[in-house]
Structures are given as structure tokens and as C-alpha cells.
Simulated scan of single mutants.
Amino acid sequence: MSTETIITAAASGTWTLGDLTVNRIGFGAMRLPQTGEALVPNAVSRDRDQAVAVLRRAVELGVNHIDTAAFYFSPLRSANELINRALAPYADGLVISTKVGPARNPSGQWVEHARTPEELRGQVEENLRQLGRDHLDLVNLRVLGTDSVAERFGALAELREAGLIRHLGLSNVHPHQVAEARAIAPVVCVQNRYGIGIRPDHDAFVRECGEQGIAYVPFYAIAATGGQGGADGQADEEVLAVARAHGASPAQVRIAWTLHRGPHVLAIPGTGDPDHLAANVAAGALRLTGDELASLDALHARGA
């Protein structure tokens, strides 16, 4: 699949996050502050001008859903600061989603998750300050484990009522936690790790989110088992065969497969490379055949 013809994010179709309409191909900012592995101390900071240029190009290509977090930073770069620098004043229709819960100290080491209402409010306010916003479009509560989310989600619901947050979502969660949160306030999206061969046991959960009108937003869909370190360079023969048939890359096939899981499934591939950005956006136009989907589905069912 050639990317010489400019394909925009509009080719992926749209979904509505509450009252906010976004193209199904978005952009994840995790990899933006550094080169190499993300979310580690002493990462090599990315060139600021390159990062700013990638963000601006993403918007030019029709991306209107950018996923970020205050804990996305390297020694010299912050994803939120880069977004502010590149895109403020923000265009109407641009949706910036962020996450709260995890925390890193200034040296980049992970510290205990925010759990109290005061700690969560502090993280929301930090995102507001870094992004230069008076409210956040979408805040996802990132969860560890299977414990109750009621107190933490309730705290965010209160900030939503106060006007600091427009919509709420959940990340790294299980169905019972979504049900618990929905009893408190509307949930517009679920961000979970998912992709070809990754968590086939979550297939029913993905479908259930669609039935409830909740967007499902996979992360590490390209990286697969590589996680925050990025794609490991290995590609299964089934993925390679589909890629060859379409003149596409394995990464594009992985993105396209996730989008084929349902109209409510969104993609947020991240990169600091302008060529990879264009290819990721172009994957939204890749249409897989029934036979190709069956082959990839069988690979998925076998697990990573």
C-alpha cells in the first residue's frame, strides 16, 4: 500500500467520544519525548524541532485525537509541553486525552500510583498546566490490578462536574471495573493493551464495549510483545503475507486489523518519525479481505 498519495486520518472513519467526534486513527504521544525505549530514566531526549514538526504534521494529516500523559517525559522533554508548543492555540475539534494514576518522580523513576482524590486532582491540574488548558477533553483513569475503582473514578467524576474534565475513560481495566465506573459517571472509552496475538481472551470485552457505545483504544498494537520498547522487528508469516498483498508494512497491517475489530475501535500509534507517522495514518485506508481477516484472526487466537 503506497503512501505516496497523501492519505489522511479521515480515511479511517470516525467515532464519537461523548460529544466529541474523532477520526479513528489518532496519535499516541508516549514515544515523542525520547528516542528508544519510552518511560525509562535517562532516556535519550528527542530533538525538540523534530517532535514539534511531527505533531504539526499529524494534525495536517487529519489526526484530531492525541493521547498523552504528564508522566510521558524524558530528561529534557515532556509530551505535554511539546503538544503545547506545537499546537497551541488549539484548533476547534482537536481532542486531547490524557491519563492519571501512574506517577514518576523528576528523575524518571516510577513511584506509587495516585489513589486519593487530592492526588488525582493534583495530576489533573498538572496536565492542565502543562497543556495550557482550562479543561481536559478526556481523562482516563489508569488502573493497576482488579481492585475497586469507585473512589478514584468518583473523584474524577467530581472534577468533571466542576468543569475541569469533559469526559472520562478507563485504562488497563477489566469488565467489572467498567461496570462499576459506569454506575458513577459515563465512560466514553477503554484503553487496554490489545493487538494481533495480544490478549485474545479480551475479544468479548472489546465487543461488549462496542455494544455499550464505549470506544476501545488499544495501546502497543504495533509493538505487540515489544511493549514500551517498541516493535521487536519480528513479523509472523500471516502478517507478512497480508502486507505483501497490499504493498504495506507489517505495522500497517497490525493497525488495520485492530480497526477491523469494530467501528468503535480507535488506534493511537505513536512515533517521532515523520515517515512512520504518514504510514500509520495511511493504515486507516487499508481494507482487509475476509480471507485475510480469517488468517490474522487465527494467528490472534493462538496468542503471542
Rank of each mutant, 00 (worst) to 15 (best):
R115T: 09
N280S: 15
R85Y: 07
N84H: 03
D147Y: 13
P102M: 15
R104H: 15
H246F: 05
P218V: 04
F205M: 11
L299D: 04
A53K: 10
A185E: 06
L164D: 11
G132L: 11
S45I: 01
V217G: 04
R166D: 13
D273W: 05
I196W: 09
G284Q: 03
L39A: 03
H176L: 09
A70V: 07
R152E: 06
S45W: 08
Y216C: 15
I66L: 15
V206G: 04
E208N: 07
P175H: 14
G270M: 02
A103K: 07
Q109F: 11
T35P: 01
R152N: 02
N80Q: 12
A114E: 05
D49W: 09
L299A: 09
E180L: 07
V95H: 09
M1P: 05
V149K: 06
T3N: 01
Q130L: 09
L32I: 11
D19M: 00
A248N: 02
H113F: 14
A86N: 02
N140I: 00
V59Y: 00
N105D: 14
R115W: 02
P41L: 10
R261P: 10
D134T: 13
E211T: 14
V253M: 13
A251W: 02
F71Y: 13
S74E: 07
A235R: 12
A256L: 08
L164W: 11
H113M: 13
G28Y: 02
L141M: 06
A183W: 04
Q212Y: 12
A38W: 08
V187M: 12
L168N: 01
N280Q: 09
T289S: 12
R254Q: 08
E119T: 07
A204F: 00
R133P: 08
T68P: 02
I184Y: 02
G270Q: 04
A179E: 15
T271P: 00
E158M: 07
G163H: 13
E112D: 14
L136V: 14
D67N: 13
P106W: 14
I96A: 02
L159K: 00
E118C: 04
D203N: 08
P200I: 08
E180K: 01
V190T: 03
S107E: 15
V265Y: 02
H202S: 08
E125R: 14
V59H: 02
A282T: 05
L55H: 05
S249K: 03
A279Y: 00
I7S: 07
G13C: 05
L259I: 12
R160K: 13
P200L: 04
R129Y: 06
N192E: 15
Q234D: 03
N42G: 11
P274W: 05
L286K: 01
W15K: 05
D273E: 12
F73A: 02
A10K: 06
N280E: 08
Y220D: 09
L128C: 10
L170E: 11
P274G: 09
